[in-house]
């Protein structure tokens, strides 16, 4: 967005704060409704009703839960490492929020809606999502308890493993775009969304995104049946709420990344639908992918840990590495490289 006060003073700061609030508040609100959405889908797939008491159709359930969590007492384990214990949920929440700074929402009246349209947008997203592991690993360690610690260790190994294949998938997309800027990535899909030529990469990215956000079937860090709730065991009230918010904001972010990388971000599916503004398309796409995430959660049983590692290192890594070679070879052979020169 263009800055009306470009004089690098205090007003610039005010403008940035306004921009940040304009993105952050809707994201937090969206998270509240998305949790409700998730529970409803999950319930529907199990032939239950799901939340239906608070508000019409139970739509205000998340707010009731939020108020309940705020009013609860924060319990701190006696032998916990206090500082790290409290930093961990804050870190998770903050990282889940700052990533939205580079997501481009499209144009309204020729004004590009993005807080920061940086050159290395996709690397920024990758960097922030790779930091997400710290919230979990720190909480696991700081709780000074067995189950959280096991959850933290599992999570660290899992996220590091799946990041590798996510990185290679990003490289295949970037080879087709020739820029690390998110708006350029979207513009490059004006003729054809990338999920058509790069379909296998899309599948790998979707599954890795599930693993990266610790969603079922890869929710081993918080496997209820064996680790109680993994790294969150010792957390209560607001600290727990922050983990919850951060986790769902991360899931939405992954959905946004899938939409941007493979489904043309704010571009409409057909040119004649151009009159509907970009942000609506992006939000719709995010909602569709969130539905896929919930669907998978309800339909697929949890992986065993060694199977999870096998999938990451022995299946996805060779395939995605091979795909980088194949895609770059194809682009060079048919002279399709985006930036020649």
């Amino acid at each position: 967005m263009a800055n009306p006060w470009p004089d690098n003073g205090l007003l610039t700061l005010v403008w940035f704060v306004l921009c940040i609030l304009a993105v952050m508040l809707p994201v937090v609100l969206a998270v509240a409704f998305v949790i409700y959405f998730d529970r409803k889908i999950w319930a529907a797939m199990q032939l239950r009703r799901g939340p239906n008491v608070v508000g019409p159709f139970g739509i205000l359930q998340s707010f009731a839960d939020g108020i309940k969590l705020v009013l609860k007492e924060t319990v701190v384990p006696a032998s916990a490492n206090k500082g790290v214990f409290f930093i961990a949920p804050v870190l998770t929440f903050v990282l889940a929020m700052v990533a939205w700074a580079v997501i481009p929402w499209g144009y309204i009246n020729g004004v590009k809606l993005v807080i920061s349209d940086i050159n290395v947008g996709i690397l920024y997203l990758f960097a922030i999502s790779s930091l997400g592991v710290y919230g979990i690993i720190m909480s696991g360690w700081a709780s000074n308890s067995r189950y959280p610690f096991l959850g933290g260790l599992r999570s660290a190994a899992q996220m590091v493993s799946y990041e590798v294949s996510i990185g290679f998938v990003l490289i295949t997309v970037l080879l087709c775009v020739g820029s690390l800027n998110l708006s350029d990535i979207i513009e490059a899909q004006r003729n054809m969304w990338f999920f058509i030529p790069l379909f296998p990469m899309f599948i790998i990215f979707l599954i890795s995104a599930l693993a990266e956000t610790n969603r079922p079937p890869f929710d081993l860090p918080e496997a209820e049946a064996e680790l109680v709730a993994g790294y969150q065991v010792e957390y209560s009230s607001m600290t727990f709420a922050m983990f919850w918010l951060g986790e769902y904001a991360n899931i939405l972010l992954m959905c946004a990344m899938i939409s941007i990388l493979f489904f043309g971000g704010w571009l409409p599916p057909f040119a004649f639908l151009d009159f509907i503004p970009g942000p609506i398309w992006l939000i719709l796409k995010i909602a569709v992918f969130f539905f896929v995430f919930s669907w998978v959660k309800a339909a697929v049983p949890r992986y065993r840990y060694d199977q999870l590692m096998r999938l990451g290192w022995k299946v996805f890594l060779p395939i995605s590495l091979g795909a980088v070679v194949v895609v770059s070879g194809f682009l060079v052979a048919f002279d399709l490289l985006p930036n020649k020169g």
Binding site: A127, S130, L131, V133, Y134, W141, A156, V160, E163, G167
Partner: peptide, 20 residues
């Protein structure tokens, strides 16, 4: 960004893993 991805996102996680 590469500093964050490589050192913070991967190397330091392994450090932390071992030290913990």
């Amino acid at each position: 960004m590469i500093l964050v991805i490589v050192y913070v996102g991967a190397v330091a996680v392994l450090f932390l893993f071992v030290v913990m």
